[in-house]
Amino acid sequence: MTLGLLIRNLVYWLAVIVLTPLCFTALFVCAWLPRRRRHIFGKSWALMLLWVLEHVVGLKYRVIGQENIPDVPSIICSKHQSGWETLALQKIFPDQIYVAKRELLWVPFFGWGLWLMNAIMINRSDRSNANRRMQQQGLERKRHGFWITVFPEGTRIRPGVVGKYRPGAARMSKQLDMPLVPVAHNAGEFWPRNAFIKHPGEITLVIGKPVYPCDEMGPEAMMAQVGEWIEARQREIGGVGPCAHPDEKQARIALAHSA
């Protein structure tokens, strides 16, 4: 790690320290506003941090498949490798809320902001009640015009590793009649889980064609289709970042040599 990279990351963390209480305190003060109006505070926080990552740290990104975004509220099913996607998805897609673990409510400012921004907070140890909460609150969020973001593997997964794709988002899709939009990306190769240092480079994010609920396909089959698509794209875009899985790095090198 160079001194320049350390300084650029310190600037990013300074931005986090300054912007987080500023934006979310403003959100508290304006909590009386309609849901869609107060959503701007959290989204502004995400966009400003994305700007710092791109223009200070040098962590850029490109989006493939933006034409696949439906024109109706949908459920975003995204790979979860880092904190980057929780910021970037808010810029790439229309106004959205997250399905998140209940423990995040105790994180100062950020967790309280999630609550004020209408996130669906679930207890992951109580699956039956978590699914019921997702369906009930998901319908209410849809009525307000929000998209819903779900990380179907349930937690952040290291690059090159496949988690278990849980069918909760697909159940919600069928019950709420909302398309599933699969999203793959390699952000974890530049922003490892719980890492202080974010590395410069270019993240690739790929948006797939929506999967629409139908009577012929159950939730498990829907999620299997989404998961297979995501993992296929992960293999295509993986192996380029400094924190990539060694196997994916080797596959990328072999592909380059055979070209």
Rank of each mutant, 00 (worst) to 15 (best):
I17M: 15
I17L: 15
I17E: 10
I17Q: 10
V18S: 10
V18N: 11
V18G: 11
L19N: 12
T20Q: 00
T20A: 00
P21R: 04
P21W: 01
P21K: 10
P21M: 13
P21D: 12
L22Y: 14
L22N: 08
L22E: 11
L22I: 11
C23N: 11
F24D: 06
T25L: 02
T25I: 01
T25W: 00
T25S: 02
T25R: 00
A26T: 10
A26H: 12
F28P: 01
V29S: 01
A31W: 09
W32H: 06
W32G: 15
W32I: 09
L33T: 04
L33W: 04
L33D: 09
P34E: 12
P34V: 04
P34N: 10
R35Y: 06
R35W: 10
R35P: 05
R35K: 13
R35S: 14
R36Q: 13
R36S: 11
R36V: 07
R37K: 11
R37H: 08
R37Q: 13
R38D: 12
R38G: 12
H39P: 07
I40N: 05
I40A: 14
I40M: 09
F41S: 09
G42Q: 05
G42M: 01
K43T: 12
S44E: 09
S44T: 15
A46N: 07
L47M: 14
L47A: 13
L47I: 13
L47Q: 14
M48I: 08
L49R: 02
L50R: 06
L50N: 13
L50P: 06
L50K: 06
L50C: 14
L50H: 05
W51Y: 05
W51L: 13
W51F: 10
W51C: 12
V52Q: 02
V52D: 05
V52Y: 00
L53H: 00
E54C: 03
H55Y: 05
H55E: 08
H55F: 01
V56A: 11
V57H: 07
V57Q: 12
G58T: 03
L59G: 05
K60M: 03
K60E: 15
K60L: 10
Y61Q: 05
Y61V: 06
V63Q: 08
V63P: 08
I64Y: 11
I64D: 15
I64K: 15
G65S: 11
Q66W: 11
Q66K: 15
E67F: 00
E67S: 10
N68D: 10
I69A: 01
I69Y: 02
P70K: 01
P70Q: 02
D71F: 00
V72T: 14
V72L: 04
